[in-house]
Each structure stands twice: as C-alpha cells, then as structure tokens.
Design a protein around this nucleic acid. Structure first.
Lengths: 347, 347
DNA sequence: GGACGTGGGAGACAGATGAGCAACAAGAAC
DNA sequence: GTTCTTGTTGCTCATCTGTCTCCCACGTCC
C-alpha cells in the first residue's frame, strides 16, 4: 500500500533525522557515514510509511531519468513489434529502466518522426531505441543523435548510428542446408520482389549454399512475387511447374510458404513427402499452425530488442562508446526452427 | 535541432526579460498581461534557441506528468496487444500524453504485478491502463487504485474499476445472423473449453440467435475443444460427422476455424459451397490468408485501447468520474468482417 | 490617487550532494 | 596529569535541478 503523498521529508521527520540522512541511507551513498542503528531506523520507517522516491524529482536533480524511449514502427501490424518490445522491456527492467513507447508508421514523414523523437527528448529519456518492422535502410530524424541511440532491425541510411540486424544470409544458409542435409538436390527459392536487404541477402545465401554443396547455385530456380500468401501461391505454381520436378522449396517468408502449401495441395503434392518446404520469419500463428508444421528460420526480434537495450544502457552509463559500434551493424543469427515440413526426397 | 541544454532561463536572458515572462508567454497564461511585442520576441527567441520545456521540471511543479502507464499482458504473444497499444497511443498523443509501457504476464504473481504498477506510480504517471490479452476476470494489485485506472479487455474481480470489454454475445449474434441470412438452417458451433466470459457469451449468442430465428437453439450442435488449430480440427471432425449434415459452422476463433478448414478439406467439403464458416477475432494473419478468406468477427482492440485512454484522460483532467462508470463495464461492439467463407447452402 | 498596463521576485515542487560542524577519542607536547 | 592537536564518526545546511504561480512593483494616465 504505498502512499504517494509520502516524501523523503516525512520519513526524515518520523525518523528524527534530516532529509540528507534519509537520502544517504536509501541511496546507500558510499561516502556517507551513518551508524548502522540510524540506517536501520530510517529503512524501517521508510518501509512502514510506504515511501517510494519521486523519480521525477530524482531525475531533475541527477539528470538521469532511467527512461528509454522506444520509437516503434507499426506496432499493430505484425507480432514482430511485440517481440522487440518484450526483449527491450525485459532487458530494461532488469537494469532498472523503463520504456516510453511511441508508435510511428513506416511511411510517416520525417517531420512527424522528428516530432516523436522530440517528445521523447522533452521527457529527457536517457536514450532512444528506434525499431523498424523489417530490415532496411532508414532515413532518421536528425534529433535522434542528441542522446545515445540504437537502431533495431535496420541500418541508418547515413550509417552513423549503432544498429542491430538479423543475419539474413546465415538464415537462408541454414534453411538450404536443412534441405540439403535431408538429401534434396533440386531446390528452388521463391523470393520477395521488394528491393530490401533481406531479399538480396537471402538470395545470396540460397545460391552460395547450393554452390558450396557442389550444385549449380547460379542456375538454381528462383521465382519472385509480392511477399504475401497470394504471391507465394503464384510463385510456387510457377516454380513447381518446371520440368525438373523440384523436391525442396525455400520460401522468402512464412506467408509465401503458406501460399506454397496451397499450390502444392492443388498440384496433388503432399508435404513433406513430395515436397519439402522451409519458410522464414517463424510467425507462430502461421508456421506452427500449418499442416504439417512449417520448418522455418526465426528472426531474432526478441534478441535484437534485448541486445539494443543492453548496449544502449551501457552507453548511457558510460560503459560503452556507441560511436565505435556504429561503424558496422551487429548481426544476430537466425536459427532454424524445425517442424515437420522437411523429409528425405522420394527415390 | 533542439538543444536540450537550453532552459527557460536562457531564453529569458536572450530576450531581455524575466523567466516569469517567458513562462507566461509560452504557456499562454490567461491572466498574464504582456505586450504583443514582448510575446513575439520571446517566442521567436525560444524558437531560435530550440527551446523545449523540461517536462520533468514541469511535472514536478504542476503535479502532472502527462504520462499514462500501460500494463500490458503478453505483448509478444498475440497481435492483439499491438492493437490495444496503437489505440491507446494515438488517443494519448492526440491529447498530449505519452505512454509508459510495462509488460507483464497473464500468469505473473500478484506481487510482481504490484511491483510493475509501483514502478509506474514512482514515475508519477497520471493514470494507468491495465490491458489483458483476452476477456476475463482479473485480480488486480491493490495499488492500482491510487491513481485513475481503466481496465482493457477484462473486468476486475473486485468489480471496482472502470472497464471496457468486447460485446462477445453481439459478435456471436452477428456471426450466426450472417449464416442465417445466407440461408443456412443447420448450423453448428465449435466452442472453446476454457471457462471464460467469451466462451459462455458466444455460446449464448449462438443459441439465442438461432432460437429467435425459429430454430431450436437449445438443441443446436456444439462441440468444445482447446481453442487452437488442432482443437478446431478435432471439434470440426466430430461436428461434421453428424447425420444431419451441417452447412454452416461458427467457430470460437480464427485458429479453430483454421482447423475446421483442414477438417473440411479432408472430408471433401469445399468452403463455402459445401460448408460456410465464420470465425472470431479477425486475426489478419490467419483470416485474410486462409483460402477462401475467412469471414469473421473482429474484436475491437484498437477501439478499446482508444476508449480506455480517452476516458482515463477525462478522469485525469477531472472531466469524468470513473467511479461512476465502474459500476458496469462498457461494452464495445464486435463487427463482422466479410470475406469469402459464407455463401448460400446447396439445395 | 486609483486603475490599468507590464512585468519581475520569490518560493515551491522532491530529492541529491558537496561542504561543514559538533562531539568525542587517541596521541602528542608540556 | 593537563592541554592541545589531529582525526574520525555521525549527521546537517545550503544549494541546485527547471518550471510554475501567487503576489507585488513600477510607471502612466485620467
């Protein structure tokens, strides 16, 4: 039952000491010399009164709010945002920080995003996390630079801010390797049409892995469509109509894989016995609920949120120099999540 | 390019007036008598210097932070949380407030949730939104009561806090009415097994709507299973095996509907011509991506978040008395989202 | 000599912090 | 053995953070 009308002054009066002493005791100020008896008394009385410090007043004096701003794109659209927020929130909470969240849109004007950052700055957040909903290059409002900042799931167009991104190529490699390991050699890729890093890097990973396995990666079949269920369906129809009868299919994301499932069903192909499929994103709602469960590559949203928060706090507390880390984005791996959509090809 | 080292004092010096005057001008204090020239000068200089008020200091002085706390359950698990947050954020931003978010777990101990609320209180949020991820009765930490609070998507076990919840029964009615309107008369319901309000109220809506249409609602077939894809599949297998060949199926949620789709496919039933299906939740990722698109009932998460925020702010600003509203939860309607899973039954 | 037009001074908000002060003890000088 | 010095312990005072707001002051005009 903490009563927020209780101040340090009330504790001081009740304990018969000065506010200075109460402050010293409660903050365990190292150089303060106070007898153990007094310390106990202060602590007990503070507890009894349900005293909690006014973080506003603390922050005003110490120039530290213990708040981090999180500008997040399109919170409602994907579950990805939730995972980033969760990772950030847990990392922040563990170190005594809290998150102030502002939603923005990927298509919002630079000015409106500047205003969002400004709102955070007026509240004197100690640092800012800027999270985008998919891996790309973003143009950032200039005022972002006025406090320590970290980018999540994208890199700054200007290249001047520390960022953490997923290992798209490594994820693609893991996916293709899983197909190779199961014995497949006729493997296709249905890719996204957007010109974003994920599109390019997953393709690179796809081709390189095949080549390294002794196959002709450069000639391996690739069909591109809009990265939605319908696009996946169409690309799969095309790629499965090839003469060389693919047995393994790597999909740009789980939604496209969902379309591929339908295409396969229409063609009378049973997954995984006739066609093994791997997705990307690990969108639980889709991947775990398709039948059979979709083996896919997980994007490390939680981990990116946590990593970014850890390092942001380190910077805030002077333990790290973010400008050094800004030179190259940090890359977090995308682990394969095995379900039931891969098996050995038929003879 | 706002510089956060600039204070009201700097503006005052640069403008050659007192801080009082600057404060009066910038806050447009009604009783302040200051010449238009002075006002302009102050405003221009503040702008030039990139002055932004220190909200901490303002808050300390005025006892208003303009921050709302949002305790949200399981942010990462469903997209629902994102929609609530979005609704709350937009409503808050429109009125000059910001959101401080803390994640918690539906299964977290009362004590840990008390600590979460406590963290918010120490930061002197003006009010608290407490959002759960599905409609149920929750036991709330007692310190929630120390500032204005509103519950989102649940009602307080103690019944003492203003709440906003979805119209589960109305949503079920809309779903069944859509089937009736298409001409169906043999309609079944696959329900959840959890004993939560949604389970009971959707069932009630299902039966009542049939009865009012002159059918035997009390005898209408209902099968219950765990509210996941697999449960939906099993319940659908059972309910579709009945002799009276249902032509319409109402599903507790979209995940169960997804399972029903598979059951129908296995039985050689084509949706919607052989079987019309309605879901609940409008989980985009599922409903829009099933084939054919699933007609379903949308839960008003965005609206609940916005409604709760509006009324919370009203209470904070003294325009509303929440204790009066606490007597009965506010119920927001669940609109039907039409896609392609309903058509007229075969003759 | 009030009324009006313009503007400034001095707390107060709640807590943090460096400097300083009283009380006492141990050791040194006489 | 007494006084002075120096040090330590235990705690307090004054000031600071940036802004708001009540109350007062000054000059001018009727």
């Amino acid at each position: 039952m903490s009563n927020k009308n209780i101040g340090i002054k009330d504790v001081a009066v009740a304990a018969g000491v000065s506010v200075t002493t109460v402050s010293h005791v409660l903050n365990e100020v190292s150089y303060a010399r106070i007898s153990p008896e007094t310390r106990d008394k202060v602590r007990i009385i503070a507890e009894q009164l349900g005293y909690g410090p006014n973080r506003l007043a603390q922050a005003l004096r110490t120039q530290r709010t213990g708040m981090l701003g999180l500008v997040s794109e399109d919170i409602a659209t994907t579950p990805h945002a939730g995972r980033i927020i969760l990772g950030a929130d847990e990392a922040a909470k563990a170190r005594g920080y809290n998150l102030m969240i502002i939603n923005t849109s990927g298509s919002a004007s630079l000015e409106s995003r500047r205003a969002d950052v400004e709102a955070l700055l007026e509240r004197r957040v100690d640092g800012i996390l800027y999270a985008t909903m998919y891996h790309r290059n973003v143009e950032l409002p200039a005022n972002l630079g006025s406090v320590p900042s970290v980018l999540v799931d994208s890199v700054a167009a200007a290249g001047n801010i520390t960022a953490v991104i997923p290992d798209e190529e490594g994820g693609a490699r893991a996916a293709v390797e899983a197909l190779l390991a199961a014995g497949h050699s006729r493997i296709g890729f249905i890719n996204n049409t957007d010109d974003v890093p994920a599109t390019r890097q997953r393709l690179r990973g796809f081709r390189a892995t095949l080549t390294e396995a002794g196959l002709d990666g450069a000639a391996a079949p690739v069909e591109s469509e809009v990265s939605e269920v319908q696009g996946g369906y169409e690309a799969a129809r095309r790629i499965l109509a090839r003469e060389d009868r693919l047995t393994g299919l790597f999909c740009y994301n789980d939604r496209m894989a969902m379309g591929a499932y339908r295409a396969a069903a229409e063609l009378g192909l049973v997954i995984p016995t006739d066609l093994s499929v791997v997705g990307f994103d690990d969108q639980e709602l889709i991947a775990a609920n398709l039948h059979p469960g979709l083996t896919t590559v997980a994007l490390p949203h939680y981990e990116m949120g946590a990593w970014a928060t850890e390092h942001l706090i380190d910077a805030v507390e002077g333990k790290t120099d973010l400008s050094l880390m800004a030179l190259h984005p940090t890359i977090l791996s995308c682990p394969l999540v095995r379900r039931d959509s891969i098996t050995a090809p038929r003879q």
